[in-house]
């Protein structure tokens, strides 16, 4: 009886301990990544290829998402703003929402699926096939060789892809507004510029950069700590995507609280 009663608490305690241990190990890997930055000779050559994989290859999916988000935002804004509210508020809503929220977050989530999963699966496979050990024996620090270029590439490319996505989203909203909503370009642009602050752009880029950092470090973390064959790799990949998606949303709220 007491065992049944105490079981939930034991599980909770165990869960909390595992979570804390995971965060601690992630922190150690991140700290090691920072330290590994000094091995410039190791990671520099690998940075551009990783930037191509993280950034360039992710552009189509990010722009695709942004395109439809822009269209839908524009249509829904016009549906919401009936009567008393002037139509140029469609521009306000499309611009502000794309920049502050949907641009960075949707791009971040899409890239956590694409980039985070890719990193976790690749490093996980390298771990279980001893390729990471092989790097060590060939005197390559694995963190400098594998983690640093991926994390740096993500930090650099996430905001870049996000910026393009925001631009495409706003352009899609604008074209929708003039084609389907009988608004003029002047009206839409008036709304767009009305409440625009340069900080909006900074905010979006700060968010995107932090998402890039988290997605890459979490992907590397789960990849590095993969155990046991193909199943382990699958497990790590799933967890990397789930955890980085959750972290993106939490971080999104965190920035909203601290920066706005």
């Amino acid at each position: 009886m007491t065992r049944i009663l105490s079981q939930p608490f034991i599980s909770m305690g165990r869960g909390a301990t595992l979570l804390a241990a995971g965060i601690g190990r992630w922190g150690m890997l991140t700290a090691e990544t920072v330290r590994a930055l000094r091995h410039v000779d190791v990671w520099l050559r690998l940075l551009v290829p990783q930037m191509a994989r993280v950034g360039v290859d992710s552009v189509p999916i990010a722009l695709f998402i942004a395109l439809f988000t822009g269209i839908v935002l524009s249509l829904q804004a016009s549906y919401t703003f009936t009567g008393a509210i002037p139509l140029y508020f469609v521009g306000v809503l499309v611009g502000k929402t794309m920049m502050l929220e949907l641009g960075p977050v949707l791009t971040g989530l899409a890239l956590s699926g694409r980039v985070g999963a890719n990193i976790a699966a690749e490093l996980g496979t390298m771990r279980v096939t001893e390729q990471i050990d092989a790097l060590e024996t060939l005197a390559y620090p694995p963190v400098a060789y594998l983690v640093v270029p991926r994390v740096l590439a993500s930090i650099i490319m996430f905001p870049i892809v996000t910026a393009l996505a925001i631009a495409v989203g706003i352009a899609a909203g604008w074209i929708t507004a003039i084609q389907l909503l009988d608004m003029s370009t002047a009206e839409f642009v008036n709304g767009l510029t009305l409440f625009f602050l340069p900080f909006d752009v900074t905010y979006a880029l700060i968010k995107a950069t932090s998402f890039g950092f988290m997605v890459a470090t979490i992907g590397c973390f789960f990849g590095f700590h993969t155990r046991g064959g193909a199943e382990g790799v699958g497990h790590s990949t799933t967890r990397a995507v789930v955890v980085s998606s959750m972290v993106i949303l939490v971080l999104d709220a965190f920035w909203a609280v601290t920066l706005l």
Partner: peptide
Amino acid sequence: KEALVGVVILASVIVVTFGTLWLQG
């Protein structure tokens, strides 16, 4: 591939810079 990375970065920088300036009026 390297060139493509350059193009994407450049496009993004241009979009951000001119977009911000334009929206600021």
